[in-house]
Design a protein around this nucleic acid. Structure first.
Lengths: 176, 176
DNA sequence: CGCACAAACTTAGAAAGCTAAGATAAAGCA
DNA sequence: TGCTTTATCTTAGCTTTCTAAGTTTGTGCG
């Protein structure tokens, strides 16, 4: 054990403290998602669409793979989101430069238009969230979150290298 | 606007900063979930089961409603998780004191046994996550997360009072 | 007692996410 | 040139979570 504590800080208390952190982060993430979703709904946009719209506003014409990387999501997740965005007329997907494999996503005029209506909503949600926190606290919060993310991703990579895997979500070709 | 910045820090930078906070929290939440799930899988337990096991270890015999409240999850979510836990022999659900409505969940011996094997896994994940953060930073992190959660939940409650709702997840009895 | 209202659990169906395993096109190499 | 490998997008099917809308059982009041 790396971080030993004096005997007088009971074990139980330690457990509770530590376990709470994951819970707090989960609750904060959910509250943030809901807050944003609540606002986006007024413009008929879902959370998943928002994620990809934001990326395309910065950099139009990315491929599905590039989009999923920038969004930190898997390709199947990006895939279904992009299909729906085509249906709703927010983007088109096109093959460019004679490459029949890569499908680049381009914002439609409607997709571009949403920008000025949606971005203020996200800023509003963020402003509400951080109300009462000082600049210093926010700085530490960001740093701490980055550290946690780095630590856990490193851990997952190491676990994967040792052969540990996330449980399959599909019945693996069973007994035979 | 509360936190004005000197003119030389462009608006764009501000936006990016603010938007990033939600993203960081989302990433941290996901990394935490995966880290825990990866470990729980070695004992054949899913994340959802862990959530309710933890609560029952503290307080056995709670009803579905009480469990969903303590877990910060809705009843349908608790419902499906509990059904699976019954299937797997982790809990039983029983009517007590002749009440045919309330269903109290009781840990089976198997459910109790898991405690000593699972709790260390959660502690391990937490230890890894906070590696490199000082006690002060952790304190601020916790406070900041609590502030954010409170702010956003208040905002959602106010929005609900004004009639704003989360988008329905089911097709609302359409045209007729 | 009987009926209305409330509490508790269930069912229906959707979104968003994932892993695994295709399919097809491009690139690289012998 | 032809074959193998790699890239990219798709499909299949599962989990977890939600909102909305039942169903059933208790409770309280006239």
């Amino acid at each position: 054990m790396k971080y030993e504590r004096p005997a007088d800080s009971a074990n139980e208390a330690t457990d509770v403290q530590e376990e709470r952190l994951a819970r707090l982060i989960r609750l904060a993430a959910r509250a943030f998602n809901r807050s944003l979703q609540l606002r986006l709904t007024t413009e008929g946009v879902t959370f998943g669409q928002w994620i990809f719209l934001r990326i395309l506003w910065q950099e139009d014409g990315l491929s599905q793979r590039e989009l999923s990387e920038r969004a930190n999501l898997t390709e199947p997740t990006a895939h279904t989101a992009l299909l729906r965005m085509v249906e709703q007329g927010l983007i088109t997907r096109e093959n460019v430069k004679g490459n029949k494999r890569r499908q680049h996503a381009f914002l439609t005029p409607r997709g571009w238009e949403l920008r000025e209506r949606l971005e203020p909503l996200a800023i509003e949600a963020n402003d509400i969230a951080v109300e009462g926190l000082s600049a210093d606290e926010l700085k530490i919060l960001r740093r701490a979150l980055n550290v946690i993310i780095t630590n856990l991703e490193r851990d997952e990579a190491e676990a994967a290298a040792r052969g540990m895997r996330m449980p399959p979500t599909r019945i693996t070709t069973s007994v035979l």
